[in-house]
Amino acid sequence: MAAGGEGGPAGPLWSPSGSSLVVEADNAGYLPTLPDGAFTLIYVDPPFNTGRSQRRQQTSMVRSADGEGDRVGFKGRSYRTIRGMLASYDDAFEDYWSFLEPRLAEAWRLLAEDGTLYLHLDYREVHYAKVLLDALFGRECFLNEIIWAYDYGARARRRWPTKHDNILVYVKNPAKYHFDSAAVDREPYMAPGLVTPEKAARGKLPTDVWWHTIVSPTGREKTGYPTQKPEGLLRRIVAASSREGDWVLDFFAGSGTLGAVAAGLGRRFVCVDQNPQAIEIMRRRLGGHATVAAFEPALQQAGPV
């Protein structure tokens, strides 16, 4: 593994033998201090870019010559033309993806050979994210698109109401990734009389459509953070794609749901966010399970872990 930095006045850096961390930082500055291949699971729930203006433009699709693209992906194909076309879809797209792309490239670097990335978005950006992740990871590393369907959201009369999020799942190495179906919570069979009593008692493995309620405004999980995700959703992800003792990472951590679930399942975690409200919520929620500190790159000194 590549060397990271050591702790100090700038706050702690990751160590494979250290404690779990909650880090107040701009993830663009903090992620490069983490070593290659450190995490078995990375869950990313970035801003959904909901406020972008939509300005459609007529464009022609011209494929660039081999080797002229700014990124080479599956079978050596160039992705410059695709990015240019997507950037011209509206005037906010390029800004959003210039923000997110380098962070997803860091996620690829930080994943272990048996690691898995879960990217949580919605209908606004998920299709562009699929193209981008195909370029970063390779299309052969795409594992699933999970649909999280829930019981709240838009009320519409001129289109179908949107009641789901999309979670793209990519693996670092399609020949080595970890997936433990036996550790995942089971769902009841819709027709239990058609299977054996043993199967009916055990339940079935969930499909790629997950029905799960939101965090109840009056429930035990509620932290007050506006984009908080339910623990049941993250528990399924952590159980399936990591082992007890593994390191997991969320660098848009928000209320710290990944950390809470990881601690409950015996995983070690790093949760990163630059929002002071998020850090205060995670301090209360995860302080008993992790070191909480700020990271200031200007003060950080490089050194071996």
Rank of each mutant, 00 (worst) to 15 (best):
L110A: 02
L136R: 05
T207A: 10
A135E: 15
E6H: 07
G51I: 01
A240M: 08
E187M: 11
G76V: 06
K222E: 11
K163V: 05
P46T: 08
A263M: 06
D91P: 02
F295W: 04
L34H: 04
I167K: 01
A201P: 13
S17E: 13
P304Q: 07
E113G: 09
L205Q: 07
S98W: 09
K163Y: 01
Y225D: 12
T223I: 11
Y123I: 02
A156Q: 12
L110M: 02
G153M: 07
T213F: 01
G5F: 06
T40P: 04
D114P: 12
D185P: 14
R103V: 04
V62Y: 07
Y79N: 04
E244K: 08
H289K: 06
P32K: 00
H164W: 13
F99K: 06
F269W: 01
N144I: 00
L121V: 10
G8P: 13
T162C: 05
V126R: 06
F74Q: 09
R285L: 10
H164L: 13
V62K: 14
L265P: 10
A2C: 03
G69E: 11
R267N: 02
D246E: 07
E231Q: 15
L31K: 03
V44N: 00
G5C: 15
A3S: 07
Y118T: 02
R155V: 14
F137I: 12
R55V: 09
R268I: 01
L13R: 06
K75N: 05
Y152K: 11
D246N: 11
H289R: 03
V270C: 02
P226C: 01
A262G: 10
E231I: 11
S17D: 14
C271V: 00
V23F: 08
T116V: 14
A38V: 05
A25S: 08
A263C: 03
D185Y: 09
D95K: 02
L13W: 08
S241W: 02
